[in-house]
Each structure stands twice: as C-alpha cells, then as structure tokens.
C-alpha cells in the first residue's frame, strides 16, 4: 500500500508540472493580456501599454516568465492579483474551501440518494419505480447544471420562499453554520443531480448482477431476510464499483461546482477562475488552476486508496 502511495505521489509531480506549463502557455496564446484588462479603453495608448508590460515583466520570453513564476511558486509566493491587487493565496485559499464545501455537500446528495435509488430499483427490477427512476436519472444526467440550478432557485427560493436564492451566507442574517447549511441545500443538490444519476445506474446494475450470484442464493437458502440478503451480502460486493464511480464523480462534482457557483453566486474558486479569465489575471488564474489540479490529484488518490482498503482482492493484487 505504501509503495503504491509513493508511486502515485511521484506520478503527481510531472502531472502538476504539465498542468502548470499548459496553463501558462494557453494564457499567453489568448489575445489581450493583463495590461489591456488593466488599462481598459486606455489600451489604445501604445507607449503606456509598452511601459506597463515592461514593468510586469511580460516583455520577457515566455519560457523566462515561466521560470520566474515557477521559482517563486516553489517558495510559496504565487504573486499579487493584477485584478484585485491583493496576494493571490489570500484570494484562492478561502474560495477553495468554499468550493470544497459545495463539492462535499453535492457528494453527500449524490452518494446517499444515488445509492438508495440504485438499490431500490434493482430490488424492484422492472417495477414502476425502477422504470421511473431510470427515466428520471436519464433526464437528470442529460440536463445542464445551470438550467437545473435556475429551476430549483425559481421553485424553492422565489415561488415557495423556503430557501435562499444565492450566496453562502445571509447578508442581513449573518453567517452561522446553520445559515451556511441552508444556503448549501439548493446549489449542492443542483450540482449533485448528474452524479446522483450516474451512481444510481451503476449501483443498480451492480446490484442486479450481485443478486443472482450463488452467495446470495445461499443466503436466501439459509433463510436470511430479504433486507439482510441485499444490504449485507449483495451490497458489500456492490461497494467496490460504487466507490470507484464515486471517486470519479468527486472530480466531476468539483468541476460542476465551478458552474453552479456562478448560478448561485457561491463565492468559490469557480467564479474566481471565470473572472480571472475575463480580466486576464494570469497570476490568479495560474495559481487557481494549479491548486484545483492538486485537489483533483489528491481526491483521485484518496478514492483509489479507499477502493483498495475496502476490496480484499485489490489488496492481494
């Protein structure tokens, strides 16, 4: 296990390096740069553009700019945002925590509801519930997240007035954990729907397969209850597939959170990346993408480790 972990960590280094190189290169390919964004209409003054470009070091060859950035980043200095004029880490840190909270909330919805739907649909194979659940999950998996978000917001925030329409805290009511939880309900649910549908379908098919295995037949022969057959014997063998797909969905939920954040004005790293692209804030964007990539690598690693820990066959391998 430790050897595997060391190999995965070692493999993450070139991945992160590649991400940083590609991000840096892509940023410089896109027309318009931070100087144009900073000057706005005054970018029509070529002397000013040249002077500020020189001051920011953007006149140096791209590889030299990259090396300067890398050297600073390795010492923990990610620079100052050209849009907000504050240290980038002070921007990204809190927003990343908000995005992780949204991802975690979405994951809870996706795993709990997806698993329940999958198990019930498999146990009641070809029943009305099974058919309805599979139809709804198909629609859920196909619907754009932002559209679902707007529908939920309209129904629960505007029509019914049960939940807040946007933000993470109440501007007037404050920011207690309960208020944050209240604000989390809609965006987390909107973000979870696609993953929930995927998990439900995988759990259903794995469960259908498990339910016809000899060990379940044996359990039935021993006179165990249907619930025990399903939850104790069959479900344990569904778990590796469920964890595997959940691990993959964590990354997807994290990516989806970036879109949901704009719809629900959730102050996460997604909107920061969006506005950094618009403002050509290379410094913030570079740091944000790198940190988000690191989160992806870590999450995938944790999912793999969880799968190995829960599946004796993997441990033996």
């Amino acid at each position: 296990m430790l050897t595997y972990l060391a190999q995965r960590v070692a493999a993450a280094v070139p991945t992160m390096f590649g991400v940083s190189v590609v991000t840096f290169a892509l940023l410089h390919i896109v027309p318009g740069g931070p100087v144009v964004a900073m000057l706005g209409l005054a970018a029509s003054n070529p002397a000013a553009v040249a002077a500020i470009t020189r001051d920011l070091g953007l006149d140096k060859p791209i590889w030299e700019q990259y090396l300067i950035w890398l050297k600073r980043a390795l010492s923990g200095d990610f620079g100052m945002s050209t849009e907000f004029h504050v240290p980038v880490l002070s921007l990204v840190g809190p927003k990343l925590a908000h995005t992780l909270l949204l991802t975690a909330g979405s994951l809870v919805y996706a795993v709990v509801l997806g698993t329940i739907i999958g198990i019930v649909a498999a146990v009641h194979y070809r029943s009305v519930f099974d058919r309805a659940a599979m139809f709804v999950t198909l629609v859920g998996a196909s619907a754009p997240v932002f559209w679902i978000g707007l529908l939920l917001s309209y129904l629960f925030a505007i029509r019914l007035g049960w939940l807040p329409a946007m933000g993470m805290t109440s501007i007037i009511g404050g920011s207690s954990p309960l208020i944050v939880l209240e604000h989390l309900i809609l965006p987390a649910f909107a973000n979870s729907i696609i993953s929930m549908a995927v998990i439900a379908r995988i759990v259903r098919s794995s469960m259908l397969e498990a339910l016809v295995q000899p060990y379940v037949l044996a359990a039935r022969a021993r006179g165990l209850s249907r619930t025990r057959q399903v939850l104790v014997h069959a479900f344990r063998n569904v778990l590796p597939d469920a964890i595997n797909i959940t691990g993959l969905q964590v990354g997807f939920l994290f990516g989806g959170a970036l879109i949901v954040e704009v719809v629900f004005a959730w102050p996460g790293v997604g909107y920061l990346i969006y506005s950094s692209i618009q403002a050509r804030d290379y410094v913030t964007l570079q740091a944000s993408v790198l940190i988000v990539s690191a989160v992806f690598v870590i999450v995938n690693l944790l999912a793999d480790m969880a799968r190995i820990a829960l599946d004796p066959r993997e441990q033996a391998a």
Binding site: S153, I158, V263
Partner: peptide, 20 residues
Amino acid sequence: ITFKALPDAATRVAALRAGD
C-alpha cells in the same frame, strides 16, 4: 451598503425576486 457580484443576469433577477 453591500455590493454583491452577481455576473449571471438570471441569478441577479432571482436574487431580487427572492428579496436577497
């Protein structure tokens, strides 16, 4: 006065309708 950045037009309107 609290200024809230709401770049999505539909979100802005939803926030107004919801009283946020």
